[in-house]
């Protein structure tokens, strides 16, 4: 009986809510995941050529880094609203906004990773007859992978959180449930959706950490020199 009453009593935690609105929660979570995944993947696809462009010299680096920083400064509510005349009330609007946000972190980290590749490694590859494309794919990219993955993790976690603002145009995944619950002060729905959102961010972060470990098995060989280099990366990540 107590469990059935928790909807009427408007309790924070309500088992009956989870049971009766389970499909709604699942639907919102699925929307949240695909909006986040699409945004981060498109962001990566755009950020990579931009980072390569920025690497070609100061002429390109200044405008690319400047523009992505300006985009990052624009508050999410304004960003989504500015895109409204272009996209209307659609998921494309939310995805585009989130892509623009992810660019700042992704471009910076990919660039930092590529620039940290030791010159000797490059020279050695060139000496072995590697062309520029093979050099990039087989030497530079693997060495830049830890920095790239660190950026990808930060971008993904912030994208999961920012997706909720998409409820402004009705495409905010779990944010939609929060928005719907506001007028009636439906505590259980707000709390459940919020907690799910944070769990989603943590799960995505752990998943990417796992992917990073699979992709870069050599970073797990612990020597004292490596351990201190790892600490250095952790520090820049925090910024």
């Amino acid at each position: 009986m107590a469990e059935q009453n928790c909807l009427v009593e408007n309790d924070w935690i309500c088992g009956e809510y989870l049971r009766s609105r389970g499909h709604e929660l699942a639907e919102a979570t699925v929307q949240h995941i695909w909006i986040t995944a699409a945004s981060v993947l498109i962001g990566l696809a755009v950020a990579f050529p931009l980072a390569l462009l920025a690497r070609r010299g100061r002429h390109f680096a200044g405008p690319v880094l400047g523009l992505t920083t300006v985009l990052y400064t624009v508050p999410s509510l304004a960003m989504f609203s500015l895109l409204l005349p272009l996209f209307g009330l659609s998921a494309a609007l939310v995805v585009t906004g989130l892509v623009l946000y992810s660019l700042t972190i992704l471009v910076r980290n990919i660039l930092a990773g590529l620039e940290a590749v030791p010159q000797e490694a490059r020279e050695a590859a060139k000496g072995m007859g590697y062309g520029p494309v093979r050099l990039l794919w087989e030497v530079e990219l693997p060495l830049a992978l830890p920095a790239l993955m660190a950026g990808l993790r930060i971008a993904t976690v912030s994208t999961v959180a920012l997706t909720t603002v998409g409820s402004l145009v009705g495409k905010g995944g779990l944010g939609n449930l929060i928005e719907d619950a506001l007028p009636s002060f439906f505590k259980a729905q707000v709390l459940t959706a919020s907690v799910l959102c944070v769990l989603l961010a943590v799960a995505a972060d752990l998943l990417l950490l796992g992917v990073q470990r699979l992709l870069t098995p050599w970073t797990r060989i612990r020597t004292p020199a490596r351990a201190s280099a790892g600490a250095g990366i952790a520090k820049t990540e925090a910024v």
Partner: peptide, 23 residues
């Protein structure tokens, strides 16, 4: 503490916190 705090700050949606306050 310093590093974890900024990670937590990123993972928590602003909208959710404001909505929770409104409850």
């Amino acid at each position: 503490l310093a590093v974890n705090l900024s990670n937590v700050g990123r993972a928590v949606p602003v909208f959710a916190v404001l909505a929770l306050f409104m409850m």
